[in-house]
Each structure stands twice: as structure tokens, then as C-alpha cells.
């Protein structure tokens, strides 16, 4: 074998290792996170979160308060590498799309969790926000923060069967 090639391989092996680690661990973690999100979304289906700014007229409101949920998520090493390559050529960056999706759904779930713990039956005026968290060196993105907030409502007449609780 060509000694120069071997030297090159040794030089790049840490990067290759990190790429493989990122690809394998990142994919497994992401899949697990999505499975977990789906389970919790089903559990919270009876607690609606809507973007109306006023509750419907037939809801008898008995108390309210701000609820919020947030999460900071980041790409794995492999996806970050793939995204960096993609940015050169432009176009759709598939690596980021599931990241934003899982972050946003997680934020909404945490908001619902807080609402359920406080005793609220519904959330209105939900707003979603995204912000980038920079590293200390400023050059790279450490992560993205996804945040959801809204006004939790306590209702005198619980929503009951207004929404399907299973299926979908």
C-alpha cells in the first residue's frame, strides 16, 4: 500500500470517527426522540393548544396564566458536516428540517406539560419563537432554541369529548 495514502488515512481518521459516531448515535437518538414525542402528543391530545387570541364564547373561563416551554437542540457532527457542504451549493438542507420539527414539537409538549401541572384545560394565543445560540467563539452555531408560549385557561366546564382522544 502507498505509505502516503496510509499517512493521509491516519491523519483523517479522527474526523472519520466523529462522522461515523455522529451518523450512528445521532440517527438513533433522533429516532428515539421522535417516538417519544409521538407518545406524549397522544397523551396530551385532550389539552388543546390553539392560536386564537380569544377563547370561544362557550368556554367558561375560571382563571388563566402564562405557560411556556423551550428546548435547545443541535445537529450531530455528521449532519452539520453535510449541511455545511449543502450550504455551498444552496437548496433544501434536509439535515435541519427534522431538527427544527422535533425541537418545536418538544417545546409545545413542554408548554402543555406545564399547563397540565398548573391545572389548565386549554392553551390559547400560542406563539412560537426561534433563536440561534452562538458558541463562545461565535463562529459556529451551538444550537437553536425553539420556544412555545401561550395563555393557559382553567375552564369551568371541561372540554370533554370535543376532541378525539385516540386514533390519528
Amino acid at each position: 500500500m502507498n505509505p502516503e495514502l496510509v499517512e493521509l488515512a491516519i491523519q483523517f481518521s479522527p474526523v472519520a470517527f466523529l462522522l461515523v459516531l455522529g451518523l450512528v448515535a445521532g440517527t438513533i437518538l433522533e429516532r428515539r426522540h421522535f417516538a417519544d414525542i409521538r407518545v406524549r402528543e397522544t397523551r396530551f391530545r385532550s389539552l388543546p393548544a390553539v392560536t386564537f387570541s380569544k377563547p370561544p364564547a362557550d368556554w367558561a373561563v375560571d382563571g388563566c396564566g402564562l405557560v411556556a416551554g423551550s428546548v435547545v437542540v443541535s445537529l450531530d457532527y455528521f449532519k452539520r458536516f453535510a449541511a455545511a457542504l449543502r450550504i455551498i451549493f444552496g437548496g433544501r438542507i434536509k439535515a435541519f428540517e427534522p431538527l427544527m420539527d422535533r425541537g418545536r414539537r418538544e417545546a409545545i409538549l413542554r408548554m402543555k406539560q406545564e399547563a397540565a401541572e398548573t391545572g389548565y384545560d386549554a392553551i390559547i394565543n400560542v406563539r412560537l419563537e426561534t433563536s440561534r445560540i452562538a458558541n463562545a467563539n461565535g463562529s459556529t452555531t451551538a444550537g437553536v432554541e425553539l420556544m412555545a408560549y401561550g395563555t393557559g385557561l382553567k375552564l369551568r366546564n371541561p372540554l370533554g369529548n370535543a376532541l378525539p382522544t385516540e386514533g390519528a
Binding site: 433522533e30 435547545v72 437542540v73 449532519k79 444550537g143
Partner: peptide, 11 residues
């Protein structure tokens, strides 16, 4: 950041 996912410290 190597494996991605939630960065709990920042959250």
C-alpha cells in the same frame, strides 16, 4: 454537539 439532540445545559 457531536451526537446532536437536546443541549440540556443551555435549555
Amino acid at each position: 454537539n457531536l451526537v446532536g439532540g437536546e443541549l440540556k445545559g443551555y435549555t
